[in-house]
Design a protein around this nucleic acid. Structure first.
Lengths: 337, 337
DNA sequence: AATTCGCTGGCAATCGATTACACGACTTGC
DNA sequence: GCAAGTCGTGTAATCGATTGCCAGCGAATT
């Protein structure tokens, strides 16, 4: 067995390889009868261009790389799915890498992608500062857009949601539901989302006159376990706030669960909110009020930016920061206003 | 800017490109001082081989493709993560595709992977018969191993768990917990796992003398919604069995949830079991008893088989079917024996 | 009728690596 | 002392496509 090459098609159609190439990928005009003959020969032989050979020649692979902090997190899974979908429309493929929440692994993955000549990279950096160097270096070599999170000190494209605005909507909502005080169950401030959500909570709690307390700000990681543990700490310490504002849905799921095991009524005794709107929020008891991240739109936007960057000279363009405004999804873990 | 090529290194080190290639990827002996000079030149210039050019020459890309039915399903996500991990150890990359549970999309993805010269393919076919043609065709061109599910009529490698044995363990367990009757909440029999788990349920329910009823066998899809709906149907129809054996965790999560909203006590009134041991099983109320799929081992085995197939002439080897025996994970949705 | 133009199609270079083959120098054996 | 083998290195072909440049040819222009 031998893979069909362009030379085979050329021979069969009685033309040169140059003509076959032009007939198929239409760089230049070819007379219609020749084009027809070539197409016929190609289909008869079952010819398909060899993307490797083409990539070597034109230095373009029609592949984009994506690096996420953890594929375990359903939010990133949803993002990956959306990106895959958006790329499919452009006839591009996705090379997916998992950074395992480790900046070193992340850097390695980024390098590997550059080496592999992907056309562009979509990355959600796992760390706000430790990821900077690798992201910066990568961005100098290739079109790169950051998704959801971003690192400080670089000027690359970014698309995500307005975390501050989202927090404002959350606090507005729990306030309307009668809360007078609120705790923040978040993640250590190692990346931009964590920081912005935390900052948003602080700023808008003040705006809406919600009582807070340094002891009510608990920072761990994005996991169910941490949510459970945090509620434990809060509960054991005594007085509970009227609302538990969580930095993501996993934490919120943990929180709700801990509330139930400890007999704390949600939302009557405390209201709980999440962030991301992953699929399992519906599954909580009660279903979580949360902030919907429009992953489809985020992905579309990212792919568009990447295409733009690949088209226009990258040096001339200004970096675009696209912040979509997320919607609050009200379910039963909060009281209706 | 200009990418550093092997020629640059050669010039710098004062040798030929052939020597550079040999010095770096060590095909044949090179005198140690030359090797040293070459290595020095390479690092000074920051040279890295161009994988595209190499791939064209040696027709090997060090990339394997993976196609899963749905990246939304946490079980497959876990599988992907494990495969990524296993490949990383071999210095290979993963090209991930989502078939969106559609055999046509799946076929397209498989073709795309073949065209892209991946070294091998790992696929969990979405349909037991509709996926056959594409899988077969692909397997004729490349090393291919099926994961978890497999299609009929092909003789490719496969690795997964022994679904029948798992079902036996499940039924043994619920019987020990006092169940005398059981319902099966499954998925339509469109793929091998669905069939085997269903068959396993039937066979071993008989063995353990658990009462069943055609009306207690409900087949839908792998989703939380279906689990909820199925319990609704069962409940509305009147009498409930002592155990709800679910074909996967998503269904089980839905089932448990529906039980709670309808005031059916789990596990006292009915025991509920899942399958896969996805992360969220711990989150259910009560946490789910389920069958653990050893994704790490499955992935390792798959990668090993792929490597073997790539090494030995594919024609000579017999197809290997590796069925790992899964462990039952007992949590609180069933009664301790 | 001669020149120019436009259009098609072929030749050959090119992308960046790997590797078969050749070649010279040097060792070894008889 | 000469043939045979070893070893290290260079030359050039090769993988399979794309594309700059040139040639031929018919139509259009002067």
């Amino acid at each position: 067995m031998h893979r069909v090459t362009i030379a085979d098609v050329a021979r069969r159609a009685g033309v040169s390889t140059a003509t076959v190439s032009r007939a198929l990928s239409g760089g230049r005009k070819v007379s219609s009868d020749v084009a027809e003959r070539v197409r016929a020969a190609a289909t008869e032989l079952g010819y398909e261009v060899n993307p490797i050979a083409r990539a070597l020649r034109v230095s373009r692979t029609d592949t984009v790389g994506m690096v996420v902090p953890s594929i375990r997190n359903p939010f990133f899974t949803a993002l990956v799915e959306s990106v895959e979908h958006a790329l499919g429309a452009d006839g591009k493929e996705l090379l997916l890498c998992d950074a395992q929440s480790d900046p070193d692994t992340e850097a390695k993955r980024l390098d590997a992608l550059v080496t592999r000549n992907v056309d562009g990279i979509i990355v959600s950096p796992c760390h706000g500062t430790d990821s900077t160097a690798a992201v910066q270096r990568t961005a100098e070599r290739l079109p790169l857009v950051q998704l959801d999170r971003f690192v400080g000190g670089t000027s690359t494209d970014w698309v995500g949601v307005d975390d501050m605005a989202a927090m404002r909507a959350v606090l507005d909502h729990v306030r309307a539901g009668g809360a007078r005080s609120a705790a923040y169950l978040g993640a250590r401030l190692t990346n931009s989302s964590s920081e912005l959500r935390h900052a948003g909570f602080g700023r808008h709690a003040e705006e809406f006159d919600l009582a807070t307390d340094p002891q009510w700000t608990l920072l761990g990681d994005y996991s169910v376990e941490w949510g459970e543990r945090a509620v434990g700490l809060l509960h054991d310490a005594g007085q509970l706030p009227d609302a538990l504002v969580c930095a993501d849905d996993l934490i919120a799921l943990g929180a709700v669960r801990a509330c139930r095991t400890r007999g704390i009524a949600v939302p009557d005794q405390v209201q709980v909110t999440g962030f991301d709107n992953i699929e399992f929020t519906r599954l909580a008891e009660p279903p979580l009020t949360t902030v919907d991240q429009p992953t489809r739109r985020i992905a579309d936007e990212a792919v568009r930016l990447l295409a733009d960057a690949a088209g226009g000279g990258s040096a001339t363009r200004d970096a675009a920061h696209v912040a979509l405004v997320p919607k609050l999804v009200v379910r039963d873990s909060t009281r209706a206003g």
